[in-house]
Amino acid sequence: MSTTPGATGLAKAMMPVPDPHPDVFDIQWPLRVADVDREGRLKFDAATRHIQDIGTDQLREMGYEDTHPLWIVRRTMIDMIEPVVFKDMLRLRRWCSGTSNRWCEMRVRIEGRKGGLIESEAFWININRETQGPARISDDFIEGLRRTTDENRLRWKPYLRAGSREDAEHIRDYPVRVSDIDIFDHMNNSVYWSVVEDYLYSQPELMSAPVRVTIEHDLPVALGDKLEIIRHVHPAGSTDKFGEELSDRTVTTLTYAVGNETKAVAAIFPL
């Protein structure tokens, strides 16, 4: 990996797993056929579903499923270090890497018994059921989360900006299906990663080495929205706008837009 310790933004180095540690949630389940692509690789959208599912499982295990049931992801960063392949058994470990009063960053490491490694970090906001706004996390819950991190003043800072239609390399429609909509009446987080999979299919060289993909969410996508994917490719030498650590590589961005509203932005680059 060429992420730099101490770097911030898209080039940040993720917190290493504090193993062994009693507050790292550790679980295993098999890699299923619906999780993999035609070559048997665990897909980004499937990995994102696993990241969501282990979060629910840990919440239940910690005893906060009823008091803190609603969480919205603001950003997810995934490093595909080495593909995990079909018929393997997944080991997932989840722990907190940063907290504040109303949100936290949670790390998930996904490994295959036979090899393969995916690292991820997601910025989760605790949501009040009535107001649908950010809600304070209970003191006892935060105390448990902080056992794996020293970062207790976590702040939100966006890493990405939307790309414009005027200078886009490519724009395409992405029909929103009924099956894409989840219990919150929004397009599920994992569907955004299906868009990434579509792009990576046309860029096989990107998957021949470790790759980092980051998606930041601004507004939800609803059924009936005319969603467009606006693509920009920023060649090496022009990418210091993402941080000087990335000036030596190409960064591709995908802007998820409905009319003039930016719904999300993704960034893709080799590690």
Rank of each mutant, 00 (worst) to 15 (best):
W193Q: 04
L92S: 13
S194V: 09
R172I: 00
N128T: 03
Y256W: 12
I125Q: 09
R249I: 11
Y174E: 06
R136C: 02
S2R: 15
H21E: 12
E166Y: 04
W193N: 03
D185I: 11
N188A: 12
R231K: 14
Q203P: 07
H50W: 14
G63V: 14
K226I: 05
I51E: 00
E151I: 12
K87T: 14
M62Y: 11
Y199G: 13
G259Q: 03
L92H: 05
I81A: 13
R177W: 05
R38W: 09
H50I: 12
D139F: 09
L10E: 02
I127S: 00
D53F: 06
L154D: 01
P235Y: 07
W29E: 13
C104F: 12
G144A: 02
A46G: 09
R177C: 03
I215V: 11
L223Q: 12
G6Q: 02
S120V: 00
P204S: 04
S164C: 08
K114H: 08
S238Q: 15
G144D: 05
V265Y: 04
L227I: 01
M207Q: 11
V108W: 12
A47R: 05
K241T: 00
L206R: 14
G116Y: 00
K114S: 10
P134C: 05
N189S: 11
R231Q: 13
G55L: 01
V108E: 08
L145M: 11
R212H: 05
T3F: 14
A162C: 08
L31E: 07
T239E: 00
V233E: 09
R109I: 13
R93C: 04
D37Y: 10
A46T: 04
M77D: 12
R136H: 06
V211R: 09
A34G: 10
R102E: 10
I125R: 01
D150F: 10
D53W: 05
I181T: 00
V233K: 13
T67N: 01
R177A: 11
P5S: 00
D180E: 07
P16K: 04
D182K: 07
